[in-house]
Amino acid sequence: MSLDTVVEDIREEAHARAEEIRNEGEARAEEIESAAEADAEEIVESAERDVEREIEQLREQRLSSAKLEAKQKRLEARRDVLEDVHEQVEEELATLEGDSREELTRALLEAASVEFDDGDDVSVYGRESDRELIESILEDAEYDDYEYAGEYDCLGGVVVESEGSRVRVNNTFDSVLEDVWEDNLREISNRLFEQ
């Protein structure tokens, strides 16, 4: 074998080995590139899922916030309507006249009188515009020890007290209205806002 043949064989072997290394390098590069592309796709998909989840959470928060705000506005509107109704009832009580006003005032005075003993000096207070009405009721024999004592700022009715028994009974239209209102607020609300 000549030296030229050996050199040629070595050269061919070197070229073959270089080709093999280059092919292995290209294959490895393709594997790395393919793995990188797969990783990139997975990262993009994960990021998209995260963004979609974040968008959904934000949407739910905004929806929840909007629902809460709507509920608060609805409650405020209901409260305003209830206040209006309460004011209308007060106005009707304040402007009540004639036999109806007298019957209510008598009933409230009679209910208060059970708290006092016979012989107690009892003072009766009422709305200034009801003075004549109260004084005429007190002229009845059953109220001999009762006396109109002055004005009380109210819609009507009476405040009755006796220093001797240290009892004071507030039977004004206002106090009765508040008791009835509180006791029946749920029913009033249900009737006004039936759904």
Results as ranks from 00 to 15, higher is better:
residue 1 M to G: 06
residue 7 V to R: 11
residue 7 V to I: 15
residue 11 R to Y: 08
residue 12 E to M: 02
residue 13 E to N: 10
residue 14 A to Q: 07
residue 16 A to E: 13
residue 16 A to Y: 10
residue 17 R to I: 12
residue 19 E to Y: 03
residue 20 E to W: 15
residue 23 N to W: 07
residue 26 E to F: 10
residue 29 A to V: 13
residue 31 E to F: 12
residue 36 A to Q: 12
residue 37 E to D: 13
residue 38 A to G: 06
residue 39 D to H: 07
residue 40 A to F: 13
residue 42 E to L: 11
residue 43 I to K: 06
residue 44 V to W: 03
residue 51 V to F: 01
residue 53 R to N: 15
residue 55 I to N: 06
residue 63 L to M: 13
residue 65 S to K: 12
residue 66 A to Y: 01
residue 69 E to S: 09
residue 77 A to K: 10
residue 77 A to M: 01
residue 80 D to Q: 14
residue 81 V to P: 06
residue 85 V to T: 07
residue 88 Q to K: 11
residue 90 E to F: 05
residue 91 E to D: 14
residue 94 A to G: 07
residue 95 T to N: 04
residue 96 L to F: 01
residue 98 G to V: 04
residue 101 R to W: 00
residue 103 E to P: 06
residue 106 R to V: 00
residue 108 L to N: 02
residue 112 A to W: 10
residue 114 V to Q: 08
residue 114 V to H: 08
residue 115 E to S: 15
residue 120 D to C: 01
residue 120 D to Y: 05
residue 122 V to N: 01
residue 125 Y to G: 07
residue 126 G to L: 08
residue 128 E to D: 13
residue 128 E to F: 10
residue 129 S to R: 14
residue 130 D to P: 05
residue 132 E to G: 12
residue 136 S to A: 13
residue 137 I to W: 02
residue 140 D to H: 06
residue 141 A to F: 05
residue 145 D to G: 08
residue 148 Y to Q: 03
residue 148 Y to W: 04
residue 152 Y to A: 12
residue 155 L to N: 01
residue 160 V to P: 06
residue 163 E to Q: 14
residue 165 S to Q: 13
residue 167 V to N: 09
residue 168 R to F: 02
residue 173 F to Y: 15
residue 177 L to R: 04
residue 179 D to I: 07
residue 180 V to Y: 02
residue 182 E to A: 13
residue 185 L to G: 03
residue 185 L to I: 14
residue 188 I to Y: 00
residue 188 I to V: 00
residue 189 S to M: 04
residue 190 N to M: 11
residue 191 R to S: 11
